[in-house]
Structure formats: C-alpha cells, structure tokens
Amino acid sequence: MTPIAITSSLLLLFLAAIHVYWGFGGLWPGKNKQELIDLVFGKGDRFPAPFMCLLVAIFLFFFSLLPILWILKTKLSLDGKMIFRLRILLTIVSLIFLLRGLLAYFPFITKQWKPIFVYYTKRIYNPLCISIGLVLLIQILI
C-alpha cells in the first residue's frame, strides 16, 4: 500500500503546486485569463482571488500529508484516539473528492458549464477526483 500512498500524496502535492501557480497569476492550461477560467472553472469571467487559490493549495498540501501519516501511524506512535481522528479525516477528505468527482456527471449541474469544461471534467477532472477519493478510502480500509 505504500506506493499507492506515496503516489496519492505526490498527486495532491502536484495539484497544490498548480493552485500556487494560479495564485501567482499562472495561466496554464489556458493561454489567457478567460481561457483558463473556461478550462478550469467552466463558467464566469472572473478568476478567483489569489488568496483563494493559495488557500486551496494549503488544503491540498495538508491533504497530501494524510496518506503518509496513515502509513507511518505506528512508527509515529499515534495512540488510538489520534488514529481514529486520522481515519475520520481521511474519510472526510475522501468523500470530498468522491463528491466532486461524481457530481459533475449530473446534467443539471453540467448544463451551466461551458462545453470545453464539461469535456475536460468528464475525461480528466472527475476520474482524477474519484481515483483520489477511492485511494484514500481504500487506504484506511486495508
């Protein structure tokens, strides 16, 4: 299970880094601000404030530590209460990713998004979120 934990942690770190990049004005995968909004958010004409991008990055960074903490829980001598709290936290984070991944498959949600975002969310963002959510959930069940 260690390779899966490390991979999920690295993936969450990568996502955190992308949010930091956006927080400092980066445009990838777009070529301009509106294209980035269309590709990443799916609607509107305003990009979130840098503070919000950095806040999401902080959460993603924190989330990236959870799988490693779970693997190291015995080496860190965590007591039963801390292990229980870590399990609850991993479950909540897992459910957040699963919810994000599953909600976008419902037409009543996607009808308000730009077609390019719907295309990418169904092929990249949703499967990625579902995969992260499942890996985190499976990790605490094994």
Rank of each mutant, 00 (worst) to 15 (best):
G133V: 09
I58A: 13
L55H: 09
K111Q: 13
L137G: 13
I132C: 06
F106H: 05
P48L: 13
V118L: 01
N32I: 00
F47H: 13
Y120M: 08
L36D: 02
V93A: 02
Q112D: 13
N32G: 05
F51P: 00
K111E: 12
Q34W: 02
A16N: 08
L95S: 11
L11W: 13
L89Y: 03
G30W: 08
I124S: 01
L69R: 08
G44N: 06
D45P: 00
L39H: 02
M52Q: 11
T2M: 11
L72K: 13
A49R: 13
W70T: 07
P3K: 07
W28R: 05
S77I: 09
D38P: 07
L128Y: 04
K75Y: 08
C53A: 10
I71T: 15
L141E: 07
T7A: 06
R85M: 13
I18N: 03
K73F: 10
I88N: 01
L10I: 15
V20F: 11
G42H: 11
L13T: 03
L99D: 03
L60F: 03
K33M: 08
Q139P: 04
G80H: 10
L55S: 11
D45M: 00
W70A: 03
F62D: 05
L12R: 02
D38H: 14
I124L: 15
V40I: 13
F117Y: 13
W113H: 10
L78Q: 07
L13H: 04
R85L: 15
L27T: 13
L102F: 14
P127N: 07
S8K: 03
G133C: 08
I58E: 00
F61E: 07
K43E: 14
L15R: 01
P107S: 12
W22G: 11
K122V: 00
I71L: 12
L128Q: 05
I142W: 03
T74K: 04
